[in-house]
Design a protein around this nucleic acid. Sequence first.
DNA 1: GATGAATGAGACTTCATTCAT
DNA 2: AATGAATGAAGTCTCATTCAT
Lengths: 208, 208, 208, 208
Amino acid sequence: MDEAQKISLKQQIVDAARQVLLSDGYRNFSLRKIARAIDVSATSIYLHFENKDDLVHTLMEEAIERLNNRLEVSTVEHEDPIAKLKELAYEYVGFALDNPREYQVIYLISSDEMSRYPKEKFRKARKGYEIVTQVLEEGVRSGLIAEDQPRIAAYTFWAQLHGVMSVVLSQRLDTRIDQEKFIEESIDHIIKGYQVRTSLKTNTNFDE
Amino acid sequence: MDEAQKISLKQQIVDAARQVLLSDGYRNFSLRKIARAIDVSATSIYLHFENKDDLVHTLMEEAIERLNNRLEVSTVEHEDPIAKLKELAYEYVGFALDNPREYQVIYLISSDEMSRYPKEKFRKARKGYEIVTQVLEEGVRSGLIAEDQPRIAAYTFWAQLHGVMSVVLSQRLDTRIDQEKFIEESIDHIIKGYQVRTSLKTNTNFDE
Amino acid sequence: MDEAQKISLKQQIVDAARQVLLSDGYRNFSLRKIARAIDVSATSIYLHFENKDDLVHTLMEEAIERLNNRLEVSTVEHEDPIAKLKELAYEYVGFALDNPREYQVIYLISSDEMSRYPKEKFRKARKGYEIVTQVLEEGVRSGLIAEDQPRIAAYTFWAQLHGVMSVVLSQRLDTRIDQEKFIEESIDHIIKGYQVRTSLKTNTNFDE
Amino acid sequence: MDEAQKISLKQQIVDAARQVLLSDGYRNFSLRKIARAIDVSATSIYLHFENKDDLVHTLMEEAIERLNNRLEVSTVEHEDPIAKLKELAYEYVGFALDNPREYQVIYLISSDEMSRYPKEKFRKARKGYEIVTQVLEEGVRSGLIAEDQPRIAAYTFWAQLHGVMSVVLSQRLDTRIDQEKFIEESIDHIIKGYQVRTSLKTNTNFDE
DNA sequence: GATGAATGAGACTTCATTCAT
DNA sequence: AATGAATGAAGTCTCATTCAT
């Protein structure tokens, strides 16, 4: 084999797969197409991946890692936990907007279209939640964030962000609503949901 | 023709399609399988639906309508807008938990696996947002909800809820976290994000 | 119905069918396409024709008649039976070259691709053979043509011409051979096959 | 794998295809039927043939080769070129009568029902013409055949024979005409068209 | 006369996967 | 490691024909 071909076939497959996924979408993502792209028989893919799902899982893992890395870097810039939280949200959103297809790969398993994502791979995925958890804990310590269970809160935070980007990327947004505005408003609401407030106004005239 | 066969083939197809989708998942959803289920030639499906996507879109439409109907009914029970909002959230969540597959149909287009959901069908889908919008507007009028753009807020509210249920249904939740608890916490945070508060505590020592 | 629509549907169908056949070929000749062309349901064609073959038979009949008409006119121009025969041949060839698709319709039944062409329709087709027969009989009377069974000879004459045009139209001719030259040579040979000759040279040295 | 299954699938397909074609006719010739016949998925056919036409072309090629082989053998029996030519004609006719369906396969492309027979396959087909050409050249050398362009003449000879058999096999012959008689007469005429004659009688009283 | 709905067959394409080599 | 052959399923399209209205 040539020097230039030192890149392992496995890596070549993953690269080609990412390429196909990003350019053609999951719908047109086929093993044969990937094989064609790197001039290898489709069968060869099975030497490195159990099946199609396994390969997709690898791409998911990659995407998750990339997102997590971006989030990790973001938190160092600020000291105010609220600012940090906001920054996290904007990084998350930024990643999704910059790499919509890759972002969507992360949530490919939302539906039942794939065999279950292997539990052990979720561990890596958890890093993102941990980053959020830490920021939330900082906020709690500073008395700025009202949260007795930061780990759960990290998940709710994450989930809400995903919901927002999911609506944006699936283009379900009402055409009369500006996308940027929507994202800003959403993040504002999400953050406010975690902030400590002196009092919440409630109308005592109403039931419940 | 039998009395029993009075149900139009189109309806039979939709019913069978829903059945297949709910029991086998989108992944194993095939026109041929549907045809087999109602003992009809696969060709016949094309007399009523342009293609697979068209049929799936119909199912989506149905699911959206069912969800919207459930939300509509829910709002009458309370007078307090905050309570109404909470009720809406719990109805949404309830629908998703009661009919996970059907709920997921609604968001099938999140990924790029389908041809775009036709714009005109979105109009029907909008009813849900309108219901939320109205409740938010009530809240604004009562001074309980701080929102200058209720329509946008309705979308953010909806998106946040979707994010929460998406995480739940895709079973991505950390095994150490109780699902019910997670949902409750999430809804609490979401609602709080819209409530008027007298003052938000901020640490003036920090930058930003 | 409008005045303009007085043309019977049957005629409209035949016209459209001919149109489709000439422009798209037999291969792409479908009842649906014909129906579409005249904005009628495909089913309606069955009100006027038993089935697809029946319609095609009608087109065949038409084409045969057109060819026969052309042959009929041609014979009046000459008095010499040999010249007449030659003229017939060139008219036949001319028709095939001018209307290749229509000509080929006549021979659609060569293979077993169609239900048998109804016997009674062959009677009309026979006119062409009769024209040839007459010319041959004239030739016999003039002592120019050696033929004791002109009717059979008419069929052999016709068959040979068909063979020639079949090779030309199916583009099976060697590219090194000029089409026009080929046709001329062929006709020459065919005609000579019928002419009276004083003596045929034979090599008495050979067997048989 | 069984000994019996050593025959390549490709060959099995061709065999089954020939079988179906010969027994059911081109009209009822379907890839699915062939697949069924050899208990193979229809898809598998596409691994060996581009499409239906490609398979049919292969059958054509085969049939042409068989015909050519039969013609090749025939010529050795005689020394007289005229006798050789006659023998060629009778072999041609014999092949068509013995294997009518297979013969017709050769001329399947006469009509426009198929994609064009690929040019490169015609080269093989040319052998038949070459055989005829050689016999004609022999005849010219012996002074028995009057032909300055034997290659063209070979094509005209071939075409005439095809015309004759085409009429016979499509059963277009007048019921009052005996088929055998018709073939004999035809061959006689065709051969005579190539023979040298001392003088052709012409009536000088006529025009042209 | 005319039509819409339905059927069953078929061509063609693409695919994930398996198996023997 | 790698591959070619094969499979079975499926989507999509087109078609001739039938049937009830």
